[in-house]
Design a protein around this nucleic acid. Structure first.
Lengths: 190, 190
DNA sequence: AGCGTTGGTCAACGCTTGTTGGCAACGGTA
DNA sequence: TACCGTTGCCAACAAGCGTTGACCAACGCT
């Protein structure tokens, strides 16, 4: 029952090519400027194929932005290094996956994108905070604080390409942000 | 010589109305979805007036996003509260001025908007950091860190409307972010 | 009163967008 | 071979966009 057991179709390759192109365009241009025609051109197919396989533009975005933050298991790790591990993880994810940049760019101008972003971060970061922060009732607040710092750095570094934020090395970024995240997660309420 | 000494024209009111409407639309919808037609409708005038007074859409955005962060003088204040003062100031500014949200929304999908944002934050936050941080050569890095945290919170709270980030009170946000900003500004290099 | 300048409307342009339906080639099945 | 679902391309649609130029109305001057 784990596999849908549907036979592989010839069109699977096309569908996948569309998704790859869509992710790149959404990440580079945001929702409005990423046109179906441009995506189809990148995937070397006709625009009408996009409609056939994904219904409409929003359906394409939903399919293209399916995402798993793959936050590592923190239970077994030393509690004092949670911040460092998290920041490192997110830098890796952002530099190796267009979907994150796409979600950020789209979420700012498109309500569906914003909703998706809220859901992903609330669930996946929230899941971590409940196990780590001292006041479980505050887990959502703590998650929001962590998200604000991580998204802010992603914004400055990968979207706005703010000079000094780009020039900083990975290790510098980690050294500065880790204590912040650590504090948001584990410090007493100020 | 301080005043341009140009007589006030009858069209000044119209120009101002266009700017107000433009700021609202850019802030609410971002660059692409904020159409000149919609802005003109809000201002109760014809779309062609926008072209006459501001040349084209980009010119309108440039005029509408002229901004001064009005960062308070920090020299005379107690050095230990710089973080708190800065965070409070930015929360005020963001809640009372559409231009900041507009810049954030537009900067994410429009290169000209991104450039404007880089310039504003580099100059105006950078000007503060040089006077406060212990290693003047690092002022730009420190400014980027401060910007990342402040922009991240603005993104979560005012643009994405991330539930927990919205629910936090002003004082809670200040209490959590102030130490972060303070550390980015004044702490020794980690 | 007559003039040029200014403020504003209207209708249209060329273009791009998302989206649709028709039609031709392919491939497995009977 | 004849059939039928699948895969794909093509051409077109209606709508919306930024932008333009012609035209009218009101004002300030002499």
């Amino acid at each position: 029952m784990t596999k849908p057991a549907t036979a592989p179709r010839r069109s699977d390759a096309t569908k996948a090519a569309i998704l790859v192109a869509a992710r790149e365009r959404f990440a580079a241009d945001g929702y409005e400027r990423a046109t179906i025609r441009a995506i189809a051109r990148d995937a070397s197919i006709d625009p009408s194929m996009v409609m056939r396989y994904y219904g409409n533009k929003e359906g394409l975005f939903v399919a293209a932005s399916a995402i798993d933050l793959r936050i590592p298991e923190l239970g077994a790790l030393p509690g004092k290094h949670v911040g460092s591990v998290l920041v490192t993880h997110f830098l890796d994810r952002w530099e190796n996956d267009d979907v994150l940049t796409a979600m950020l760019r789209v979420g700012v101008t498109n309500e569906a994108g914003a909703e998706r972003m809220r859901a992903v971060f609330a669930e996946q970061i929230g899941a971590v905070t409940v196990g780590v922060c001292p006041v479980p009732a505050e887990a959502a607040h703590r998650a929001a604080l962590v998200a604000s710092q991580i998204l802010g750095m992603a914004l400055a570094r990968y979207v706005l390409r703010f000079g000094p934020a780009v020039e900083m090395s990975r290790d510098e970024v980690i050294a500065w942000l880790a204590p912040t995240v650590q504090r948001y997660l584990t410090a007493e309420t100020p």
